[in-house]
């Protein structure tokens, strides 16, 4: 099962919106049982990113982890979401293969 982490500054507001959108998307695609969702604060999770297969962030992350992290702001706003869903799908499939 792929582990997907959503992080924001406080682990409260923006990440909660994104988690909700991701959950809906997983269900719409019938893959909710192949992904485990986690939510947290960027400051606490930065050293644990390797524990997850996919990481979405709605806040700035340091350059050294940028490649590991997908920008979640399009999901927050509901604008330009398609590219993010595709990227998510690719990483989830890779983790579950």
């Amino acid at each position: 099962m792929a582990k997907l982490l959503v992080i924001c500054g406080t682990g409260v507001a923006t990440s909660t919106v994104v988690v909700g959108k991701v959950r809906t998307w997983l269900e719409e695609n019938g893959i909710q049982n192949s992904v485990q969702l986690f939510q947290g604060k960027v400051a606490e999770e930065l050293t644990h990113l390797d524990d997850y297969d996919v990481v979405l962030s709605t806040t700035i992350v340091p350059d050294n982890v940028k490649d590991r992290v997908i920008n979640g702001v399009p999901l927050l706003l509901g604008i330009g979401t398609e590219a993010v869903w595709q990227e998510l799908r690719t990483r989830i499939d890779a983790a579950n293969s």
Binding site: S57, T58, I60
Partner: peptide, 8 residues
């Protein structure tokens, strides 16, 4: 303003 979740 800085852009949310972008570079510094």
């Amino acid at each position: 303003f800085g852009v949310m979740a972008s570079t510094a």
